[in-house]
Write a protein that binds this DNA or RNA. Structure first.
Lengths: 293, 293
DNA sequence: ACTTTTCATTTCCAAATAGAGAATATCATG
DNA sequence: CATGATATTCTCTATTTGGAAATGAAAAGT
């Protein structure tokens, strides 16, 4: 492998799965892209791409190398950003729970962006546990997540120190139970289905604990992929669901549904101990200076 | 920053603190080195080196960038090694306790090296806790260390799972107390000085626990930097010391010293979960196939 | 079945870049 | 003050890069 340009080209081709597409996106001629790819493969002594006719796809080695290439590129960008003291544009890769991305982040990120237009923001969502993992491994720079209260009681509060992660309280969410009208008393409800995100979601976990779902086996869980689906399912009257009040505020809720407060849960930001690029410091500063009511 | 060649040059210059020296080591002309450095600095928009007269030293930014450069280079080497399926030469960065490096590793590494001459080995020593940290952060690929038994009893056995590290038993060391002759009973010894490595060393910790040093404050600890010094100090009759029997076997011990068994301690190898380059797989295989009696 | 379009690759040429050597400037040292 | 060591600048050549057009080959359209 020779230079970073080749890596950028390869990553681009791998994303587009097209030489011409990548060439267009990079403002280069296709011939250039082809040649660079060939040289890269020659230097690595391995086929990165499988050419079947005129379509291309990633080989096994290509998949593996794509990981490395992405890591190398982001590490280089970070190094340039840090060394230049922030003059070079920085990127912040943010992870967040679905709920946070839906309710709190849009405004906040917009405000941060106007304050620091030079900083590029990348946002992805996932369950809290995966977020923590992604921050630890460096795939994310920071994440907004919630630690299940049951974890905090247990020995995990101890464990968190050992993760090399720093946690900082951001704000509190008020978790509410959304149920079809006429079922005020949750425990006695005849509805025994919970619509929730896949396992790993902290709010789902809290919902399960509060409703004693693990112990009683007459509950079924309907897994969904978005809050809109969750509300839609609840609207049918066949299930209840749990979500933060702030998310509720961003949606139109049918009259047939009523919400009852469940409990409050802290949202925290986490990042690797010692991680501090100029861009990220600005981000944290902006976060502290923002009031989330 | 442009290509990896510039990084290699910069790292080399930073190590030699000399342009001509680096040029010689890299088989390049000094002019080439100078030009590359200047271009690198121009691209980064920061001074990496401080030129005071004809001597050069690293600037603050240079120090920071050196870290990144080293990381980028080793990541590139790893990617090439992995992608080529092991045909490209691989490197294994091994960390180990002082004791292991002195007794078990020389033979083992030699035997591994003859079996797999293509794999480059790097070895550094440090206290167990630092080793764990270095493996986690990727500065090391694996480490030979000992977990204090008191940790295993406590909640830490739990914690270890969460570190994303894999642990594997390698062998057991027999820890012995080395004391001046005539002080068979350790507890009643008039000698109240322990020669040991700085804090962080597991064997020191075990020694402290066994001798009840934390509780009784009439002990003093003499910190040393090598087993030879430890034995030399004990030879004077003024202190006792604790070390593995296997280390003892590599040294000439004066007649005035006697050793009494203390306890057995497991040595473990650890590496990041999911880390597996061809070279490292061979290393682990060779380790499993070796008998350490 | 034949043409057209789309795409990757190859060829060719001009421009940029890298790299060695000689010359220069600058600082230590005897 | 001269000498030797060292970084840098300059200059010239070999190599590499990268785009335009040509080629070939596979889908898509008729």
């Amino acid at each position: 492998m020779d230079d970073f340009e080749s890596l950028r080209i390869f990553v681009c081709v791998a994303e587009e799965l097209s030489v011409t597409g990548a060439a267009r996106r990079l403002g280069k001629s296709p011939s250039n892209v082809t040649t660079k790819l060939q040289k890269l493969e020659a230097n690595l002594g391995a086929e990165l791409l499988v050419r079947t006719g005129k379509r291309i796809s990633l080989s096994h080695a290509g998949e593996a190398f794509l990981d490395y290439a992405a890591k190398l590129l982001s590490l280089r960008a970070e190094s340039m950003h840090v060394v230049s003291g922030g003059r070079t544009p920085g990127t912040i890769r943010i992870g967040s729970m679905e709920a946070t991305a839906a309710s709190r982040l849009p405004d906040f990120l917009a405000s941060f962006n106007t304050a620091f237009p030079a900083v590029r923001l990348e946002l992805g969502t996932g369950p809290s546990m995966k977020l923590m993992d992604d921050v630890r491994s460096g795939r994310l720079d920071c994440a907004f997540l919630a630690i299940p209260p049951s974890f905090l009681d247990s020995a995990l509060s101890d464990r968190l120190e050992v993760l090399d992660l720093v946690f900082q309280d951001a704000w509190e969410e008020s978790l509410v139970l959304l149920s079809p009208r006429g079922i005020a008393d949750q425990q006695d409800s005849t509805v025994r289905t919970l619509a929730a995100f896949p396992p790993g979601c902290t709010y789902r976990r809290i919902a399960e604990e509060t409703l004693n779902i693990p112990e009683s086996d007459d509950w079924t869980i309907q897994e969904t992929s978005s809050y809109h689906v969750m509300v839609a399912l609840a609207s049918t009257g066949r299930c209840v669901t749990v979500l933060p009040e702030s998310v509720l505020g961003t949606m139109k809720i049918p009259e047939t549904l009523i919400s009852t407060p469940l409990r409050r849960v802290k949202t925290q930001v986490t990042w690797r101990k010692g991680y501090g690029t100029p861009a990220f410091d600005q981000f944290l500063g902006h976060l502290s200076g923002t009031d989330f009511g």
